[in-house]
């Protein structure tokens, strides 16, 4: 049975899509069958980390939600189309797929206007798991709480809540953690991103765990190297010895251990 992993944050700009891409890539490289579904239909972006643009991505989740194709038709085979980026070369031949949301403005406005059946999204995820014989399905969610994100949280075996060491994030994360507990998520982790390097990550971990009474999967340092890459590649594959990548692998291990 596949493990469903949702990556969520209460607020935008936490680095959620970047983390999802890196975590899923690490698990795909370890030999597991992995897919990512981009349910951030209002503001999709994870496809960029895999070198996709509107022309390259083909069919999208939007078309599946309008019943114009099957979910398997939308799954883009990353292992077969790694592109030129040095980090992504490690993904060659891996069983790794991305279900992208459309980046076309007309498509986005159409789905916002007409809405869609959240039940169909659920059905699509289940079909994807079976059709691709997945070990792991990662869900990149829209920040904040709405029907889709609540559904993602409700069906998840593992939930990673991403937060920055920032007062606004602390309050928002408290709301998300409360709701995740209400939805009985079996494995809940916090992931602290963009931590200032002048602070001790162990102290940050201890502080956050004390506040939320939930384990911190990793504390990732704020780094200009990541910003410099500008989502052009999978950072942890390109720079495996970087402190950020080492911390990220702790979170990947937590996900693997939780299964």
């Amino acid at each position: 049975m596949a493990v469903i992993v949702s990556i969520h944050s209460f607020r935008g700009g936490t680095g959620k899509s970047n983390l999802t891409a890196n975590l899923a890539s690490q698990i795909a490289v370890s030999g597991k069958r992995v897919a990512i579904i981009d349910t951030d239909i209002q503001s999709p972006g994870i496809h960029v980390l895999f070198g996709l643009n509107e022309e390259k991505m083909g069919r999208t989740l939007n078309e599946f939600l309008r019943s114009e194709c099957s979910i398997e038709d939308v799954a883009f085979d990353i292992g077969e189309h790694i592109g030129d980026a040095p980090g992504r070369k490690s993904l060659a031949g891996k069983a790794f797929w991305l279900v992208p949301s459309s980046i076309n403005s007309g498509e986005i406005s159409r789905i916002l206007r007409d809405g869609y059946d959240v039940g169909k999204l659920n059905e699509g995820m289940n079909r994807l798991i079976k059709g691709l014989k997945l070990d792991y399905l990662f869900i990149d969610t829209h920040p904040g709480l709405n029907e889709e994100t609540l559904l993602s949280i409700a069906i998840s075996d593992v939930l990673l809540v991403v937060m920055r060491p920032d007062q606004q994030d602390f309050q928002g994360t408290a709301v998300t953690v409360d709701i995740a507990r209400g939805l009985d998520v079996p494995n809940l982790f916090l992931l602290v991103n963009k931590a200032l390097t002048r602070y001790d990550p162990n102290q940050i971990r201890e502080h956050v765990e004390g506040i939320f009474q939930a384990p911190v999967a990793c504390v990732l340092p704020l780094t200009e190297d990541m910003a410099d890459m500008g989502s052009a590649d999978i950072f942890s594959l390109r720079y495996p010895d970087h402190p950020w990548s080492k911390s990220l692998r702790e979170a990947a291990q937590a996900v693997l251990n939780a299964a």
């Binding site: 007309g106 406005s109 159409r110 916002l112 206007r113 059946d117 959240v118 039940g119 029907e147």
Partner: peptide, 18 residues
Amino acid sequence: VKSSRNYRVPKKIWQVIE
């Protein structure tokens, strides 16, 4: 599971963005 939802945006705005 049920929910077909959309966002309450005035028609005029949709006309502009489409």
